[in-house]
Design a protein around this nucleic acid. Structure first.
Length: 186
DNA sequence: AGTGCGATTGACT
DNA sequence: GTCAATCGCACTA
């Protein structure tokens, strides 16, 4: 499975985080692929202290800090030594909603996990989780789909300038929990 | 040691 | 719709 396939595969799966406050879980409804040779990818410049988790075996967390305020989470996508990942851009709230709302403020269900920075804030994800294996049950992991996913559509990626034309963003069509402008949600 | 900028968000016009 | 905030990282010297 390559990075692009993983980005599609992850739609509908769940992200679960167990904390002392309780369990939080969300259903992945939007992803973006950052593939090998992609000038927009963090791994493009080669392995560094910051991005080394992208070079781990498929299924590990790469968490980075951006714009002085936000964290975003990726799933490493290729075999060891190859840098590529899938950015988690939006989740549908499933469990631990009151915990997440406490972290994010009094936001609607639709805005709670809509956007990479928002979902990381709500789920309590920071650099502590960087490098963790998401494929085995631990503090944070990826679970099976809880319901049948709707049709998956692709679009240009959001928030980047380099290689922005590539159709490497994937989302569940019609989901109210997807980020981005309306034309990129239907 | 200094510089420029980013896989975003929230506040404001 | 526009725009500032904010700081870690990569790069230059």
């Amino acid at each position: 499975m390559d990075t692009k396939k993983l980005a599609r595969y992850l739609i509908g799966k769940t992200l679960i985080h167990d904390t002392p406050e309780g369990r939080m879980a969300g259903r992945i409804v939007e992803t973006e692929a950052y593939i090998v040779g992609d000038a927009a990818a963090h791994a493009f410049i080669g392995r560094t202290a910051r991005n080394q988790s992208l070079f781990l075996e498929r299924g590990h967390a790469y968490v980075y800090f951006i714009y002085g305020n936000w964290y975003s989470m990726n799933v490493s996508a290729e075999k060891v030594g190859v840098g590529a990942g899938v950015l988690l851009r939006a989740l549908e709230p499933l469990e631990g909603i009151s915990i997440m709302q406490r972290r994010r403020g009094e936001t609607s269900l639709e805005d709670l996990l809509r956007g990479p920075g928002r979902l990381a804030t709500a789920m309590g994800i920071d650099r502590y989780y960087d490098g963790m294996d998401l494929c085995t049950k631990g503090p944070i992991w990826l679970g099976a789909a809880v319901k049948h996913a709707g049709p998956i559509r692709s679009s240009v990626r959001i928030g980047i300038t380099k290689e922005a034309h590539r159709l490497l963003r994937f989302y569940e069509r019609g989901s109210p929990y997807v980020s981005g402008p309306l034309r990129l949600r239907s």
